[in-house]
Design a protein around this nucleic acid. Structure first.
Lengths: 177, 177
DNA sequence: CAATTCACTTGATATAGGATAAGAAAGATA
DNA sequence: TATCTTTCTTATCCTATATCAAGTGAATTG
């Protein structure tokens, strides 16, 4: 065993249909999911009942609420399927057992975390400095295979704008080009 | 040697004065800094010449541009001192050599990354869903020892608002309480 | 395939926060 | 202590984006 991917591949495939919820807010039997086919998303629901998408996970991505380990307070992550999907899942405790002592696996995980941090950092900096239009363009460039596949309103939720605004942004872009 | 902290502690202390720049945009001899005394910050300067603070590092924090390893595009990280400070520094290659093969150090680093991701995630979710006022309150709660020590305009830059707006927010808060 | 729900667009109006400008306060320097 | 510089505040005006409200089209489902 020398990688997560291999570990995931050993797991049986689980079919999930569009709309199916895999992780619920507050639930603490959390898992990681490797997406074989389809697309998942993770998101929080704020106090006003509005969703904010934290991450999309199309084919070959791993998604989890691992990052919420330390979470004491309100923020509650959910994961659901936005397309009919096939996933392989690993419960958290099993996940940790993989990590035990093999330096090469640990190194690989560090690499993954570094990528994660890099991505998040870019998102923070874009949220701090970009307009809605700039963020949308950046999203299309960064995820060229995703933006036409995910409903506009979810892209809006990921970018931190309303669907109405994003619709207008898109209209403007079509005009200009 | 079983922790970063120990490794840092072995290094000699370097004095830096307020305003001194430790890492310049584009420079690739990057280092990590452990802050013994004072406070550093990392930030990018966007195309319009505006600073956006990515992180503060008061006593006992480690700050680096490690996270910018993969950065190809325009964004350029800088690190400077916002108070007269004392730091211990480790160049990147030395940093990597520490990580070589000791699982316990690797585990510790993974833990650090997990915390980092958790923090960044919270920041993303707050930027997506909070008003300027809510972000300011959250900042004060999260960093109670920092907000009164860092100039308001830097807090504003960290939160993604103008100093003028933050000043107004603060005024409102004083009224309401 | 009719019905119902969901996704997207468009328009009118409202608002949080930005930009600009100027002054007050507080620190730094000489 | 006086001068210079930086930080913070306050006021006015302005813009990007939100909100509210319909309407249209597309997709799912009975």
């Amino acid at each position: 065993m020398n990688s997560f991917e291999e570990f995931f591949k050993e797991q049986p495939i689980r079919q999930v249909s569009k709309g199916e919820v895999l992780v619920r807010p507050g639930q603490n039997s959390s898992e990681s999911f490797y997406v074989v086919k389809g697309c998942l998303r993770s998101y929080i629901t704020d106090v006003k009942g509005k969703d904010h998408i934290y991450q999309f996970a199309p084919e070959d991505w791993i998604i989890s609420d691992l990052e919420f380990v330390k979470n004491k307070s309100g923020a509650t992550l959910s994961i659901d399927a936005i397309e009919d999907s096939e996933v392989k899942e690993i419960p958290r405790d099993k996940m940790y057992s993989i990590l035990d002592n093999d330096p090469s696996i640990l190194q690989a995980l560090i690499q993954k975390f570094q990528n994660r941090v890099y991505t998040l950092q870019n998102r923070v900096l874009q949220l701090l400095s970009y307009t809605a239009e700039e963020r949308y363009i950046s999203f299309m460039n960064t995820y060229p295979n995703l933006y036409h596949r995910v409903p506009l309103k979810m892209v809006a939720s990921y970018l931190g704008v309303t669907p109405e605004s994003l619709s207008r942004v898109r209209k403007e872009l079509l005009k200009t080009k």
